[in-house]
């Protein structure tokens, strides 16, 4: 009878509740902060390229139509509804990332890893590789209007690539032996050797200059945002832990 009672008491233990609070609080702070900065960076550096591409997607501008087209058309300005929604959804997306990252940080700390803003930066770069660079290495960030395979097929490939790259990052960080490095390399390469779903033919109306700039900007802003994700996640994880200890 006694062990059973102990178990029930443990279920609602203050330590477990404190762990929920610490993970959720750190993740929400880190995700909101990194997401807001990521959204602003996207609005400044990515959105103009996207809006430029949409002029070709809608047919308002035509590339190779016989006459030369200006590379500097007038673009729509700030749209409160559209860009406001983008800010909200970027913050949500990055909060999703930080929830996963802080949870993994808590597991790593249990195994003796030091978690703070400095080590968090490495976590952020690993997260960028897993969630952004690895899938984008073959499914390049798409400018609106490009030809692409069925979206459901690409989502399956994207998810599998993020999962394998994520496991590879963990193995590189915590595997600690040669075999785990080899498995990590195999996991990183496999999705790209197998190949992603591709379109049957090319039909994109957007100039290649815009497509290349869009991919470069998406990766650049992604790296900056993920560096912040890791740094903030490590920082808030550490400070929330100190706060919990101080109040205990």
């Amino acid at each position: 009878m006694t062990p059973r009672m102990t178990c029930v008491t443990q279920l609602a233990s203050p330590a477990t509740k404190q762990m929920y609070t610490r993970i959720l609080t750190s993740a929400l702070f880190a995700g909101a902060a990194a997401g807001l900065i990521a959204a602003l960076l996207q609005l400044v550096f990515v959105q103009p390229v996207l809006l430029h591409a949409e002029l070709y997607e809608t047919g308002e501008l035509v590339h190779f139509g016989g006459t030369a087209v200006s590379a500097h058309p007038e673009l729509p300005g700030f749209d409160a509804m559209r860009d406001g929604l983008s800010i909200v959804f970027t913050m949500l997306t990055y909060t999703g990332y930080t929830l996963v990252m802080v949870a993994l940080m808590s597991m790593a700390e249990d195994r003796g890893a030091a978690i703070n803003a400095r080590t968090g930066l490495i976590w952020g770069i690993a997260g960028f590789i897993a969630f952004h660079l690895a899938p984008g290495f073959t499914l390049a960030p798409e400018v609106p209007g490009v030809a692409a395979a069925d979206v459901g097929d690409r989502q399956v490939w994207w998810t599998a690539t993020v999962a394998t790259a994520g496991v590879a990052m963990w193995l590189i960080a915590f595997g600690g032996n040669k075999i785990s490095y080899l498995i990590a390399v195999a996991l990183l390469m496999a999705p790209h050797l197998i190949g992603a779903p591709e379109p049957d033919s090319f039909s994109g109306p957007v100039p290649t200059e815009i497509g290349a700039l869009f991919a470069a900007r998406a990766f650049g802003v992604g790296l900056a945002a993920w560096a912040l994700v890791g740094t903030f996640a490590g920082y808030f994880w550490q400070t929330e832990g100190e706060r919990a200890e101080a109040s205990a």
Partner: peptide
């Protein structure tokens, strides 16, 4: 716009 900028299909 977020999906395009963040590299989702």
């Amino acid at each position: 716009d977020v999906r395009h900028a963040t590299g989702f299909p």
